[in-house]
Amino acid sequence: MTNAKIVTRSACFNGTVQIVDGLIADIATSSTSARGALDFEGDHLLPGLIDVHTDHLEKQILPRAGMSWDPLGAAIAHDIQICAAGATTVFDSLIVGAVGNPERRRLLPLMLQGLGEARRHGLLRADHLLHLRCDARETDLIDLFLAYADRPELRFVTIMDDGPRRDPKRFRHLERRKNTPEAEIEAEISAAATTEDCTEDNRRRLVAHCRERGVPFASHDDTTVAHIAEAVGHGLSISEFPITLEAAKAARAAGMTIIVGGPNLVAGRSHTGNVSVRELAQEGLIDIICSDYIPASILRGIWHLASQSDLSLPEAVALSSGRPAETFGLFDRGEIAVGKRADLVRVADRAGPIVRAVWTAGRQVL
C-alpha cells in the first residue's frame, strides 16, 4: 500500500506499508514502484477501528416493533454496515435481561444464533466479540448471565441500572420520554423505597463471576460522584457513558477509563439530555469512543476531534484503536506498527471521512 497518508500511533506521514501473511511487515516514509503495489492516491491509511459498544444488531433483527427479521440475515447486514464504517473489530453489545422491555429476552439468543451461524459459514467481515449489558434490576440476572458467561467471544460486561431507587430524577426523565403517566412514575419511585432490592447482590455476584473469568466490567450511565464511588467499591475500572460532567470528573479522579458515544460527539449533544461529549473532550475526559447506535459515528467523531480540538489525528484515531486494544487486551491489533495484525482502513477526506476499502488480517473485505 503506497502513496498513503499513514496514521500511526504518534504520527501522520506519506509512505508505504507492506503486508506479509496478514501482518504488517514494513513501514516506509517513501513511495514504492513495486509491481502490484496499491496506490492510495494520497488517501489516509488508518488502523482498523475497534468498536467496543454497538447495539446496532438490535435494529437489524427488530427493524420495527413486532417485526423480527431472520437472525442470519440480520447478522450479515449488521456486519456489512460495521465494516463499511471502518470497524474491523466490534463488540456486539447485547442486553441480558431488561426490566420494562421483556422483548429483549427473546431477541438475545436469536442475535447470538445469527452471529454464530454467520461465523460458521465464514460470512463475517469484521472480528465480532461479545459485550453483555446486564440489567441489575432483574431478579434472575445471574442465571441469565451464566447461560452466556463462558462463551469464548465474551470480552466485556457492563452493569446497568436505570431504576427509580438509584436515581429518581433520571428515572423520571426516561419514563417521561416513554410517555408514561406521571402518576405511574411517582408510584414506582415511592414503591422503590419499600420493595426488596436485588441490584446490590446482583452487582456483587456479577463482579465475582467476571473476575473469575478475567472479563473486564464497567458501570453504566453514572450521574453522580456516589455512583462512581459505588463502582470503585465493587472494583470497576471502566465508566461507560457517564452522563454528567460531575460523574465524568469523578471517574477521571478515580483513574477509571471513560467510554463515550460517537453520535453524541458528532451531534454536539445527547439526544436524551445528557452531558455533551464535546464538553467532556474539552475537559480531557474521554478515553475511548464507541459507535453506540450509529456505526459511522466513530470515524466522523475522530475527524471532528482532529479538526476542532487540541488532539492530533493520530491521538484522535487512538481513541478508537490503540486505547480499546490496550483496555481489552487485544494486543495483536489497534495500530499501524510492524508485527501487528493488518487490520486497515482506507479513508478519503471529502469534506469528511469516507471509507473506501477495509482489510482484516491482510484480506480485503470491502
Rank of each mutant, 00 (worst) to 15 (best):
P216H: 01
S309W: 06
C12E: 15
D140Q: 10
E283D: 12
A183H: 11
A75D: 05
T54E: 01
A37R: 03
V52R: 10
G273V: 01
A337M: 13
P164R: 00
P63K: 11
H44N: 12
D332A: 11
V338T: 13
D55F: 01
R333M: 07
D79K: 09
G255M: 11
A183I: 09
H53E: 01
L108R: 05
H56P: 04
T224L: 07
G122S: 10
N264Y: 03
L115Y: 07
L130E: 03
A118Q: 00
R356P: 04
V260E: 02
T88I: 11
W359P: 03
M256V: 06
C198T: 15
P295S: 10
Q282F: 07
D332R: 09
D26L: 09
S312H: 08
H304M: 09
F91C: 02
T89W: 04
E279A: 12
K5Y: 05
D43W: 00
F156C: 02
L265T: 08
V365Q: 11
F156Y: 13
V345I: 14
R211M: 07
D92E: 14
K178Y: 02
G214Y: 08
S291I: 11
A193L: 15
R204D: 13
P164C: 02
V358Q: 01
K340H: 12
A149V: 05
G284V: 10
R203C: 11
A218C: 00
L174C: 00
E103S: 08
A361Y: 12
D26W: 00
A267F: 03
E41R: 14
N202L: 11
D197K: 10
H209K: 08
E117S: 06
A98V: 05
N274M: 09
